[in-house]
Simulated assay, not measured.
Amino acid sequence: MGVSRRLRREATADDRSWARLLVLGAIDRHGETATPSVLASDEGMRSSNLAAALRSLEARKLIVRTPDSKDRRKVRLRLSAAGQRFLDDSRARGERWLTEAVKTHLTARERADLIRAGALLERIMAYSRASVPRGRK
């Protein structure tokens, strides 16, 4: 959790920037399927909080809302060019800090251990009770 908090600090200027980054990142991850209801469900956000965040992002010209081509009641979300730059720049700041910290504070062996630990954490994140192979409980 400490590393996550530090990455957030390094990637953003303030807590409001972090909230914007969370929503922008979710839109980026969902791509063509990004709608307010998909984001609210997958990101665990209340619809009122998400609506406020989307209004703020749209006012800053970081996202674009377009009616769904098949169901005009739905709205699709995508990053604007400015939104993509904002997200990319924030990610790059966090990555630069992490790269520098790893290079300056870890030995070659510790860096290799970190890579192996990352693979293990990926496996843990993929866990769901339904995905447990027989005999591994």
Rank of each mutant, 00 (worst) to 15 (best):
R5K: 15
A52F: 00
A130H: 13
E58W: 06
D14G: 03
D88R: 11
W18H: 08
E95I: 13
P67H: 10
V23Q: 02
A92G: 09
G83M: 06
L98G: 07
G44C: 08
R8V: 10
E110S: 03
L79N: 02
L24K: 04
E58N: 10
V102N: 02
A52R: 13
R29W: 13
K74E: 01
T66F: 01
E10F: 05
R73V: 05
R9C: 09
M125I: 14
S4M: 11
E95H: 11
T33Q: 13
A52H: 08
M45A: 07
S69G: 11
A40R: 07
R111Y: 05
M45K: 08
R134H: 14
A81T: 05
G135P: 03
A117C: 09
N49A: 12
D14L: 05
T104I: 10
R123C: 12
S69T: 07
K61Q: 15
R5G: 14
L24N: 04
G135T: 02
S80I: 04
D113V: 03
R136P: 00
R109G: 13
L24S: 03
G2T: 06
G44L: 05
A59G: 06
S17V: 02
A26R: 10
L57R: 01
D113K: 10
V132D: 04
V132K: 11
E100G: 13
A40I: 05
S41H: 11
P36Q: 01
L77Q: 03
G94P: 05
T104H: 12
L24P: 03
L79G: 00
V23R: 01
S41R: 15
A59C: 06
T12Y: 12
R46D: 12
S80E: 02
A52T: 03
S56L: 04
L121P: 04
M125G: 12
M125R: 15
V3T: 10
S69Q: 12
R78Q: 13
I63W: 00
F86C: 05
D71F: 00
K74C: 01
D28E: 05
W97C: 01
S131F: 09
S47P: 07
R85Q: 15
R46G: 09
A101D: 12
L21V: 04
K61H: 15
S80V: 01
A13G: 14
R109I: 06
L7R: 04
L121M: 13
A59I: 04
L57H: 01
R20D: 00
R73D: 00
W18T: 02
V102W: 06
R6A: 10
R5Q: 14
R6N: 07
R129D: 15
A59R: 11
E122Y: 12
I115Y: 12
A26Y: 08
R78K: 15
A34M: 05
R109W: 12
P133F: 06
K70D: 09
P36T: 00
L114C: 09
A112W: 07
S56W: 01
L114D: 03
A34R: 08
T66A: 01
R73L: 03
E110Y: 06
H105Y: 11
A130W: 09
R6D: 06
G31T: 00
A108L: 08
A108P: 05
E122L: 14
R129V: 13
W97N: 03
R76Y: 03
R76N: 08
F86I: 05
I27V: 11
